[in-house]
Amino acid sequence: MMKLINKYFKELTDIQRQQFELLGPLYKEWNKKINVISRKDIDNIYEHHVLHSLAIAKEFHFKDGTNILDFGCGGGFPGIPLAILFPHCQFKLIDGTGKKVMVAREIAKAIGLHNAAPVHLRGEEEKGLYDFVVSRAVMPLPDMFKIVKKNISKTMSNAHPNGVICLKGGQLAQELKPMGKQVEVIPVSNYFEEEWFKEKYIVYSY
């Protein structure tokens, strides 16, 4: 299913292409031992997980040297696909479930990904400062924002102001009400035409 990645990301280097190609077999292998992706969904790994993670890159072009925290990374999404795409940015991936972090760590090592550091840590315990915090529907955005706002650096170097970038699905109006005006909701279908992305959104809060 690398066709899907190539369809939307034509400028990949040989190394990036190779790293993306390795993700499918590696996740399938690990998923037999530790369930990081729903068993029913593992065959859709490129569309539902890798490409979905990369939707962020269609809206945000992180400058070299950008520091990014993946909050609640699970087995490594969206952090690992984004780290492949932005090799000169630094990614720290954290999750409270040690087994999932171990899978993310082993996969990063297996594909030679040196700019992604998966760590077994809860968001409340993370002390570092980052330009952006990324996440995939870990919890309601207002709750997540309370935890991670302490981690967002005041020093800006990207075109977008520093903030939280979340991949979410479904009806979001109620959930986002407490967030006030500084929230943008961008349909993933702006970038990807596959049916699965119809009700998927990038939610950006700054």
Rank of each mutant, 00 (worst) to 15 (best):
N151W: 05
F71P: 12
D131A: 06
F86P: 03
D143Q: 12
V103I: 12
I107D: 15
C73K: 00
V133D: 02
H88V: 01
R122M: 13
A137T: 10
G96W: 04
K127N: 10
C166E: 03
G96S: 15
K149Y: 12
G65S: 11
F77A: 03
P161D: 13
A104W: 14
D131P: 01
C166G: 10
M139H: 00
A104D: 14
K150R: 15
E106S: 12
I152P: 02
N115F: 13
A116Y: 09
D64M: 03
L69N: 11
K63F: 08
G123C: 09
I147G: 09
P118E: 05
I111D: 06
C73E: 08
P81V: 00
G65L: 00
I84V: 02
N151K: 04
R122P: 15
C166I: 14
P161V: 06
G96N: 10
K100W: 06
V101P: 09
P161I: 05
G163T: 03
H160K: 14
G123H: 09
I80K: 01
I152C: 05
N151E: 11
M102R: 15
K146M: 07
A116T: 09
V134W: 12
I94G: 01
I80T: 01
V101E: 04
Q90S: 14
S157E: 11
R122Q: 10
P142E: 01
V119F: 02
K92A: 07
F77E: 04
E106G: 01
S157C: 05
G72W: 03
S135C: 01
I68G: 00
I152Q: 04
V134S: 03
C89R: 08
C73H: 06
K154I: 13
I68F: 10
K109T: 15
F71V: 14
G128H: 11
F132R: 01
P87G: 02
P118T: 14
N151S: 13
H160L: 13
